[in-house]
């Protein structure tokens, strides 16, 4: 089986996540659900930041059960989380460097990623002075620079101003498509799902309530949440402040 296969059972105090899904090779899965449904927990479990109580994750048939540093998973959070003490270039070079490349090689790879994302002029800036859209592009470049087999995006557009959001969304969609690996993107906005994801997984209360294309969800919403989400009334606002 190529692509991502995941069975995730996680228990955290009052909350339990119990989901099962797969994404074909090169596919993009959107994950939606009300606040507290377990969307971020799902991503953290795949990344290896949360221990599974049961279940398994595999990518292209290979079990994904090592420590986070050996999973080959890239993550981008809504607040970018660029290392504040490193320049943009060194943020992107961080991964290649940690994976054993020399500093010049890591930096030249980082420079090529900045070029691809159209942010080469930012190379020597500090993250503190970047706009939200710039920071998110850098975060994406940083995640892609280590050639992950799986890309996890946690509401990557939620922190952006409306004016820059459309542009970043279009770029993000293009790069996710060019990436070629499996992408799982948590989204809280119909537009984001429409631009990024082929299939949508709806979770509520830690369980899958519906799965399908956005068109299928719109035509036959399984729950009130899905009906309002597909109608574009942004039911999960206000966006969660943190993961």
């Amino acid at each position: 089986m190529t692509g991502l296969t995941a069975t995730l059972r996680v228990r955290r105090e009052e909350f339990a996540l119990d989901v099962e899904f797969s994404v074909p090779a090169g596919g993009v899965l959107g994950v939606i659900g009300p606040n507290g449904a377990g969307k971020s927990t799902l991503l953290l479990a795949i990344a290896g930041a949360i221990e599974l109580e049961g279940g398994a994750v595999s990518i292209d048939g290979v079990a994904l059960d090592a420590e986070p540093e050996r999973r080959g998973v890239g993550v981008v959070f809504q607040d970018a989380l660029l290392f504040p003490h490193l320049t943009v270039l060194d943020n992107v070079a961080f991964g290649p460097r940690e994976r054993g490349q020399t500093r010049p090689a890591a930096r030249s790879l980082a420079r090529s990623w900045l070029d691809r994302l159209g942010i080469a002029p930012l190379a020597h800036r500090r993250p503190g002075g970047l706009s939200g859209g710039e920071a998110q592009r850098v975060a994406l470049a940083r995640a892609l620079a280590v050639a992950p087999s799986l890309l996890l995006l946690d509401e990557p557009l939620a922190a952006l101003d409306v004016e820059v959001r459309d542009a970043v969304r279009a770029d993000l969609a293009a790069h996710v498509r060019a990436f070629g690996g499996v992408t799982v993107v948590v989204a809280h906005d119909r537009e984001d799902v429409a631009a990024l994801a082929e299939q949508v997984l709806v979770i509520e209360g830690g369980r899958v309530v519906q799965r399908g294309t956005l068109a299928e969800l719109t035509a036959d919403p399984a729950t009130e949440f899905v009906r309002r989400f597909t109608a574009g009334t942004s039911p999960s606002f206000p966006p969660s402040g943190s993961a």
């Binding site: 953290l44 990344a47 290896g48 930041a49 420590e67 986070p68 540093e69 050996r70 999973r71 998973v73 890239g74 993550v75 959070f77 989380l81 290392f83 504040p84 003490h85 961080f94 991964g95 940690e98 994976r99 940083r142 995640a143 280590v146 992950p148 993961a243």
Partner: peptide, 25 residues
């Protein structure tokens, strides 16, 4: 703590994360 996770997904081992991420932060 998500900085630590980001560094980990980029291939950084726990001791390297301490030196390159946690201590500077």
């Amino acid at each position: 703590r998500r900085f630590d996770l980001v560094a980990a997904t980029l291939g950084s081992t726990p001791s390297r994360r301490l030196v390159r991420v946690t201590l500077p932060l």
